[in-house]
Design a protein around this nucleic acid. Structure first.
Lengths: 280, 280
DNA sequence: CATTTGATGTAATTTTACAACATTTAACAT
DNA sequence: ATGTTAAATGTTGTAAAATTACATCAAATG
């Protein structure tokens, strides 16, 4: 596990001086791995044992062990850390931070994905008579994107961002229909009701949402994505990106399942655009 | 650079005892990083200074520094690489690949971002009388998402995914209005026309698109994102994600520029949702 | 065969990390 | 407010670890 993330995660449990150590390390992790416990303590304005205690609190054997972990986190492969945007960050800083935390979130999401479920959902989708994508608020644009992907597959696809339309659409569901509901929290009341209606009419309901949420309980199947939401900004950010990547995966699985001839089809769909485009 | 490779590479230049050290480390690198110079020397049947000399020969500062390098080489050394999905990939493989290429694309995009432009666009947006987000096809859902972010800011925001509406909306533009046009290729004819109309009516047109594209030529300002599109799938995938992250950045810049009191506002917007949600 | 050069080990030195203890700070009840 | 307790932090000292300086040895060269 990435130590830098761990530092952020444990931040609440750290004491005042330990936080100073955390800040110093996060400010320049690269220099931290080349420092001795003494120099680091001096930089953070704390005593050496404090640094040591800090290391232990993060479940490492001591300072040298901590440096090893830190070095590994900094090595190629997991350089992306979720760092929160700060009040005084300039454009260069918040740009960097947002990119990096998005990548870090994707990394986490990747680890939390249950492949078996992905496979089963792809199965479902390929056999569906009709596929519906519904979401509300920020998740509406995710559903919108899903529409954009799946309509190319020559399957009946439905998308609404209007609850009333969603409910009506679900009333007309029949066995063989798949309804995909998107909601990060899974606590949006109207969407939970939509799930109930869809299931009552025989549709299979796939929830792209948090597990153990009210919405999850109403779904036939759950595609859970574990993403720490950036609540600082009061806006959904990373969660949405992870959902979109998940849709990419489902769409990819779909096309692979359909075989090479089907992909020829996709090419034709894309080629059709050419008429409305400037040449390269 | 990978130290393990370096050990093999330098093997010829090592002395007899140093080779013993090399063998011992290569035999079990994982244990080596947790050993002291003494234990390692004992295992290799050499003296401690020999181990130290061995470390120096590999251009490290000494034994601790060497351990750091070794640890980094051992940390899952697969940086995110854009690997294309293959015909015969199973769910686990394509899931992994899609996540990783998305992350790789974001990494590229991050490097290609021009901070100065970001800053200027944020400037523009904070001073705008009205902000419009337009896109077509896959980019429509990106614009949709932008609406979802910016309407929270208590600024007039407009979004349409219908060309006719977009054109009409642009006819009503005045000085001080900002129109953000989203298109990965920048070669969608109708959108280029929208740009022309908007500019003719005094709006500032920001293009989130490829530079040197027909659309870019009609824009007042370009937010270029370099993302290699995954053409295998005949679907926009990574490009769209990068655009969304860019919107997150703009939105974040916007809120930071507005100061802390403004962020209180955002909190209130979010709190309003509570009524339509199940409790936690 | 003497001499030099490089490799290796031994012993001393320095640096580093950590444990044990002392002091301060904060939190709480009285 | 005041004393009591527990947590946090710092101070001191020590053991371990790494590194240096130096001595010894082996091989190479003239």
């Amino acid at each position: 596990m990435n130590i830098l993330d761990k530092i952020s995660e444990y931040h609440g449990q750290l004491s005042k001086s330990e936080k100073k150590v955390a800040e110093t390390i996060l400010a320049n992790p690269q220099s931290a791995i080349h420092s001795s416990i003494a120099t680091l303590a001096r930089q953070a304005n704390v005593s050496e044992p404090t640094v040591n205690r800090f290391c232990r609190r993060l479940d490492t054997k001591g300072f040298p062990d901590f440096k090893l972990h830190l070095a590994q986190s900094l090595a190629n492969g997991t350089p992306y850390v979720s760092r929160h945007v700060d009040e005084n960050d300039g454009p260069d800083e918040y740009t960097k931070k947002i990119f990096e935390s998005t990548m870090a979130s994707l990394d986490l999401a990747r680890q939390s994905v249950d492949i078996t479920t992905v496979n089963r959902v792809v199965d479902l989708l390929t056999q569906a008579q009709k596929i519906s994508f519904f979401g509300l608020g920020a998740s509406a644009s995710v559903a919108h994107d899903a529409l954009n992907k799946f309509f190319r597959f020559n399957v009946p696809v439905v998308y609404f961002d209007d609850v009333v339309m969603q409910r009506m659409s679900c009333m007309n569901c029949t066995e063989g229909d798949v309804v995909v509901l998107i909601s990060h929290t899974g606590r949006t009341k109207p969407l939970v009701e939509v799930a109930q209606i869809a299931r009552a009419n025989g549709a299979t309901v796939v929830g792209m949402t948090a597990k153990d949420s009210p919405l999850a309980k109403e779904c036939s199947m759950i595609l859970a994505l574990e993403v720490p939401e950036d609540t600082d900004m009061y806006m959904p950010m990373s969660s949405r990106i992870a959902q979109l990547v998940m849709l990419d995966i489902l769409a990819t699985g779909f096309t692979l399942r359909r075989g090479p001839r089907f992909r020829e089809n996709l090419k034709r769909v894309k080629d059709t655009l050419r008429g409305s485009r400037f040449d390269k």
